[in-house]
Nucleic acid binder design. Sequence first.
DNA 1: TTAAATGTAACAAAAAATATTACATTTAAT
DNA 2: ATTAAATGTAATATTTTTTGTTACATTTAA
Lengths: 136, 136
Amino acid sequence: MNNTRFATALHILTLLADSNEEWISSEWIASSINVNPVVVRRELSVLNEAGLVLSRKGKAGGSALAKNSSDITLDSIYRAVKNSEVLGKRNEKTNPQCPIGKEINAKLDGLFSSIDDSVIRELQGRTLESFVAEFH
Amino acid sequence: MNNTRFATALHILTLLADSNEEWISSEWIASSINVNPVVVRRELSVLNEAGLVLSRKGKAGGSALAKNSSDITLDSIYRAVKNSEVLGKRNEKTNPQCPIGKEINAKLDGLFSSIDDSVIRELQGRTLESFVAEFH
DNA sequence: TTAAATGTAACAAAAAATATTACATTTAAT
DNA sequence: ATTAAATGTAATATTTTTTGTTACATTTAA
């Protein structure tokens, strides 16, 4: 994760959680994050697929949380936006002639996914509600 | 971490651990990983700074582990190569007019570093020796 | 019918990661 | 001493990833 997707997604959800059931526009969200509205809509679309937000089109459209912020744990956000593993990428063309090169990616698979799992577990213990509660 | 640096570093160290005290060349390491030797030398230099490997120049030069593989925990490798946080980057230009935009990066700091810490702890429990032992 | 919103494709630009070239320096061995 | 083989590293190029932008079809409330 060398990108801003998690920060963007959590920012979006924090605004929605803080908006008293109002449907807020991507334009408005974008101005808080200070990124292009299209970037926000793209992320909203991902969060929608993950079942975290609802959106509606048309005049008076916008987005809102799909469930209570106490029922949204941070791991679901992470999972929705994650596009790489914690320990990064493997070298894909390791030498099959070399005993180490031949096997290392299989070994890395186990390590990489167990580290990823530990992050997921850590995030499962935190809710959007408690994150939002940190703001006053 | 959306790069191959951890995989590359661990590959290098695995080869060194497996090499019976021989000093092996970056050329040889590169052919196992299948990357450019300069990439290997750059990473060796980082691992050297971290106190994990020794290198010597000249004919019959090469690299070797600086300490026993049982004394190398994976977190030291991770720390040496890590150049981004687990949850990625923050949006750097959030809106100071917005109550959320104004504070979110401070809140993310706490979250991001506690997740990073949990990864470090997880990696501390694993040694290079036991990783290498998985190969036969 | 119009205004204001989403949804998304297509493309552009910027940033990050990786590869390559070149060469100075070091050191062992002949 | 000279040579061969290695590291160290700067400079640059290329590729991949990330982010931004433009454009426009579609939806919906007023």
